[in-house]
Design a protein around this nucleic acid. Structure first.
Lengths: 120, 120
DNA sequence: CACAGTACTGTGCGGCACACAATACCTATT
DNA sequence: AATAGGTATTGTGTGCCGCACAGTACTGTG
């Protein structure tokens, strides 16, 4: 999976995951890695950075099966950050689709035509 | 505009722009910058890199208003690269939407509820 | 005790957007 | 002739961040 694609978006995914309820790090990682190929070396630093930036507060809670879990709770600043990032993302992705889908979706037939043109 | 979002995607946009017809650098830049905030310092290096990689061949053609234009023409390898990158992109973006839109789109009413929860 | 799940920290690398800068060619305008 | 603007290339440097790799540490279970 192209690592470049993920740049900046994972941060938005982390904020989204923590929007409606507090979660501990491992849970966030497991949820996100269901859909995207990311690991803890990427998510933990983002959680830390966003906490440093004031987007989350944290608290520890006992776990039934291991070390205590560190829960992350969104702050007002985190919510604001989420909204801004989401708006930017939606706007960005709108532009990308204008470019990628100009002339509609590409079919195998279109690729065949392109392929023929290139050969000449 | 979040520069991180663009990572890797501009390359796909450049390939897409040159899919159906040969174009010169400035035209590609103008087309893409209609929809995304990018400038020549980003596009030219990508055109050069992809040419180095064998995705494009180039040829010069006289212009009516300035220096000769360098046209870029997609190669079979470039078409292959486009397909691969596009597939990766579609797959990636599918995962992102799963995460971003879990529980449907966020409304102001939802944000109000989240905002209240955080205050407690 | 070993192991797995949970959690944090630190280092280093690579890739790329992009600012900044310099060069140069051609035409049209002043 | 000088200037400006569109076209085009090249090079340097910076910053960000995904992520590999590595090490530490706590807890309950087999």
């Amino acid at each position: 999976m192209n690592a470049q694609f993920k740049r900046g978006i994972i941060e938005l995914c982390v904020l989204t995951a923590l929007l409606e309820e507090d979660k501990y790090g491992y849970l966030v990682i497991n949820e996100i890695s269901q859909y995207l190929d990311v690991n803890e070396n990427t998510i933990y630093p983002i959680l830390r950075r966003l906490t440093m930036d004031g987007c989350f507060t944290t608290y520890l809670e006992e776990s039934e099966l291991g070390a205590p879990r560190k829960y992350y709770r969104l702050t007002q600043k985190g919510l604001k950050q989420y909204k801004e990032l989401r708006d930017e993302w939606d706007q960005f992705i709108g532009g990308v689709y204008q470019i990628l889908n100009q002339g509609g979706k590409k079919s195998e037939e279109v690729f065949e035509r392109i392929s023929q043109r290139i050969k000449e």
